[in-house]
Every structure is written in C-alpha cells, then in structure tokens.
Amino acid sequence: MRSAMAKHILVKTKDEAEKLKERLGKGDDFAKLARKHSICPSRKRDGDLGEIYPGQLLKPIEDVIFKKPLLKVHGPIKTRFGYHLVVVYFRS
C-alpha cells in the first residue's frame, strides 16, 4: 500500500500562512515555525504527521501529499480547519 510522510503547519488565516511560507523560503526552520505557530497538535512533533495512507486525511491535503513534489513547501491549502503548509519528505 502507498504511504507517505509529511510535516505541516496549520494556521487560521491565509495571510498568516503566506507570511510563514515566505519565511520558509528565506531559510527559516520548518520545525521551529511549526512549534511556534501551528494550531495543530502535531506542533509538538515539529509538525510531523507521521506515516500517512490514502484515506486518512482531508482530500486537499492528500492530493498534495500523494501528487506534488517532495521536499517543497506546498500551500496555503484551505480546509475547514484553516490553512495548511505541507512538506512531503518521503513517499513509497
């Protein structure tokens, strides 16, 4: 079965997500930003979502995780929870 591993940062506004993405583009550490800014419980794990299988997450997030390039910051992605920045670091 296909699987992937990803990290994400979840924030309430698109503006906040875009500012964080800009900081990441300038070299800020993803883990530090996730711990400080994410509203998801995964922030305690530096934003790490662990091993993910199809059907576990919301479709917009899964589309990024299983279809977009690895090791690139994707987003902001809007869901009912807020705006996500996602980095996929492994896919099988």
Rank of each mutant, 00 (worst) to 15 (best):
G75N: 01
P69R: 09
Q56I: 03
D29E: 08
R35S: 15
P54Q: 13
L24W: 05
V64K: 00
P60K: 05
H84K: 06
H37R: 09
R80T: 11
P76H: 06
Y53I: 14
G75P: 06
D29R: 08
S38N: 00
D29G: 07
I9P: 09
K7R: 15
Y83Q: 09
V73L: 05
D63C: 10
R91V: 00
K19H: 14
P41T: 08
V64I: 15
D46K: 14
Q56V: 10
K59G: 00
A6S: 12
P54D: 11
P60I: 04
R45P: 04
K68T: 01
K7W: 10
R2I: 14
P41S: 09
A6F: 06
K59F: 03
K21W: 08
K36M: 12
F90Q: 04
T13W: 00
V88I: 04
L33E: 13
A31P: 02
T13G: 03
F90S: 02
K67H: 12
I65D: 04
T13S: 05
I77R: 06
L70W: 02
A4Q: 10
I77Y: 02
P76L: 10
L24Q: 12
H74D: 02
D15L: 09
K12A: 12
I39K: 07
V86E: 04
K7N: 10
S42I: 07
Y83A: 08
P41C: 05
S3G: 02
L10Y: 12
K72R: 11
M1T: 15
R35T: 14
L49Q: 10
L10D: 13
V87Y: 06
V73S: 07
S3D: 04
L33Y: 05
S42T: 11
P41Y: 09
E16A: 10
E22T: 01
K21V: 05
K32A: 15
L49R: 11
K44W: 05
P41H: 04
V88P: 00
E51I: 09
D63Y: 06
E51G: 02
V64Y: 00
D63V: 05
V73K: 08
F30A: 08
T79A: 10
H74N: 03
R43G: 01
K26S: 07
I52H: 01
L57R: 12
D48V: 04
K12S: 07
K44E: 15
L33M: 10
S3Y: 12
H84G: 01
G50K: 01
L71P: 04
V11N: 03
H8L: 15
S42A: 14
A6D: 08
K36N: 10
E22C: 00
K68R: 09
L70Y: 03
K78M: 08
D63F: 13
K67V: 02
L20W: 08
A31R: 12
K7E: 13
G27M: 03
K12H: 03
F66N: 05
R2F: 02
A34G: 12
D63I: 11
K36G: 06
K32N: 12
A17G: 00
K21A: 13
I77C: 07
F66R: 12
K21I: 06
K21D: 11
I65R: 00
H37K: 08
R23Q: 10
D48S: 09
M5R: 14
L10F: 15
R35M: 13
L24H: 08
G75S: 04
G82E: 06
K36V: 10
Y83S: 03
R91Y: 07
G55D: 03
L58Y: 09
L10W: 15
L85Y: 01
I61Q: 12
